[in-house]
């Protein structure tokens, strides 16, 4: 049974604390969704779990099946079963999609073993078809010149090929038109099984029309400030986030406010917190 445990996670980038105590457990078979306004730390959480070198964990733990993820390098995390469908995946000129994914699959095998070429091609072509991507995809360079939607589909294609234990999909729905959203949503749903833990980061209810979530969390100021069922999403969709902000007593939900940082954090927030106590 796969299990990802995030406990009181704090992380910073360039000296700014972005994650301020995130606690979340995802079990195999469960689908969680994280929603939240821009700049509240959602992508940062995903990056920290995957091990992006820019972020520094200052407190807390991440465990995958009981193993300390924070001690693993990015590639070890991936081979241990973590997958992150990125909000903005890199472009890698000169490296074809198929070479890349083949190398990634080989990396999961024992030393010296390789994926069978024929089986690989069959599996890849099938995934390309299921995602309704263009047939020259295997020979195109990794994400280079891809449209926003193509990049997102390519992330899902990689997930299909790599069959992770825990998959985090960061805004896999943004930049997709209605048809593409349906395709991506249905493909993700078809991958669900009782060993796969899914974490969807999204701004829109419409993704969850295709991928049912068991639990919904709302992120603000680098914390999960509210958790519940699908009903939260419906309300967010209709009313926005104000009601949650009021509930938890937050005025500015961003981790790093755009305006004068110090003035806002020390002035407004401190007062608010005091009042709501």
């Amino acid at each position: 049974m796969s299990k990802l445990e995030i406990k009181d996670l704090h992380a910073e980038v360039e000296g700014n604390e972005i994650l301020r105590g995130v606690t979340l457990t995802i079990n195999g078979g469960e689908t969680h969704a994280i929603m939240g306004p821009n700049g509240t730390g959602k992508s940062t959480l995903a990056s920290v779990v995957m091990g992006h070198p820019k972020y520094k964990v200052t407190q807390g733990e991440i465990l995958l099946d009981g193993n300390n993820v924070l001690e693993m390098d990015v590639d070890e995390r991936a081979r241990a079963g973590l997958f992150l469908g990125m909000q903005a995946p890199a472009e890698v000129p000169g490296v074809t999609n198929s070479d890349f994914i083949k190398t990634a699959m080989n990396a999961r095998l024992e030393e010296g073993k390789k994926v069978k070429l024929f089986a690989f091609i069959k599996q890849y072509d099938k995934a390309v078809q299921e995602l309704k991507m263009s047939e020259d995809l295997p020979h195109r360079y990794l994400n280079e010149g891809f449209s926003g939607g193509e990049k997102k589909r390519n992330e899902i294609l990689q997930m299909k090929m790599l069959n992770p234990k825990i998959a985090i999909l960061d805004e896999i729905d943004s930049g997709l038109d209605v048809d593409a959203l349906k395709i991506v949503g249905e493909n993700v749903t078809s991958m669900k099984h009782d060993q796969l833990g899914l974490l969807l980061i999204t701004h829109y209810q419409r993704l969850l029309d295709y991928i049912k979530a068991d639990k919904v969390h709302v992120m603000m100021k680098g914390q999960l400030v509210k958790s519940g069922g699908m009903d939260i999403i419906e309300r967010i969709d209709q009313e926005g986030y104000d009601w949650i902000k009021q509930e938890v007593g937050i005025d500015d939900e961003r981790v790093i406010p755009k305006d004068d940082k110090e003035l806002v954090t020390i002035g407004t927030c401190a007062t608010k917190e005091a009042l709501d106590l």
Binding site: G94, D99, A107, R108, L162
Partner: peptide, 25 residues
């Protein structure tokens, strides 16, 4: 680029190889 390739399980060395070969393509 390195982070992206490694996030799919490629070792740092393999990822670097792939990026260099792609670059020299």
């Amino acid at each position: 680029q390195l982070y992206y390739l490694m996030s799919r399980g490629l070792t740092k060395r393999n990822a670097e190889r792939l990026i260099i070969n792609g670059f020299l393509n």
